[in-house]
Amino acid sequence: MGDFSIITISREVESLGDEIALRLAKKLAFEIIDREGWVALLREWNTELPVEPPLEEKEQEEWMVTVRTFLREKAEKRGFILLGRGGQRILEGLDSAFHILVVAPIEIRIQRIAEKYNQDRATASRILAEQDMQRERFLMRNFGIDWKNPLYYNLVLNTSFYHIEEAYTLIIEAMRRATNKVPSVPVKQRSLFEEKNFLKERVFFSHPSEEDFARILDFYGIRWLYEPRTFPLVWDEEGNVVEAFAPDFYLPDFDLFIELTTQKQKLTWKKNKKVRRLKELYPDVKIKIIYARDYEHIVRKFGGRK
């Protein structure tokens, strides 16, 4: 199989990532570490270590180094598969780690949820949207990453094309071929700020006010991501998303979405309606609208007071 003693599997909800992990673990005699296993493992090793990375940049870097060292030493005794938990980020660039992303088209995942929970298509679609969002928020908040960026992975598998057994064979073959092909320039451990800047280079703001707002956040060292998530709001009878909403900013330190609007307040009813709907469907999501007058105030304040 090669020299990989750690496999991280990041997977979309109902993409068969868990099933593939089980198959791999059985064949390779690897341990599986899922969410519960992760908490138990870290608590047993060091009761004072948080099970999720601290948000403060320096503390987070220290946490990453500590956990990474611990996992590398653990793998020397017995190989393991880490399911989720930001494994692709924590163990990024480690020679002995192989990172896999398992995806499947949304239609197939809705179908799988509908069958699994015996629900109609529309309900299954809503369940999926909620679970997808939780996963995305976890990775965004704790690691500041766009986890579906394929560049984090050695292998991306779409299970609409492969059965579990075929996926297993492909993974084994990919690991065999990837062994000893360490990139000549090691992947740099990017800090969250570097990650943000990395993403920002690709940001095309749809309005100049958004760019100005991002500058103000940067100025105060507030981390942000631009339009990182789209929330489905309305589905048709067949469960297809017919209306969605992508807030402009996400501030991971405050777990807060921000929607910026420069329209006059009386013209913002459509946006208000969307935000109301979002709050109904996703009550745990914190979102704030910054209206034109709020925005003018911010600009006036930061340019006006001394």
């Binding site: 500058r215 103000i216 940067d218 100025f219 105060y220 060292g221 930061f302 340019g303 007071r305 001394k306």
Partner: peptide, 10 residues
Amino acid sequence: SPFRPGLQRV
């Protein structure tokens, strides 16, 4: 330092 264009960080 107050926010002003060109200044990257407070």
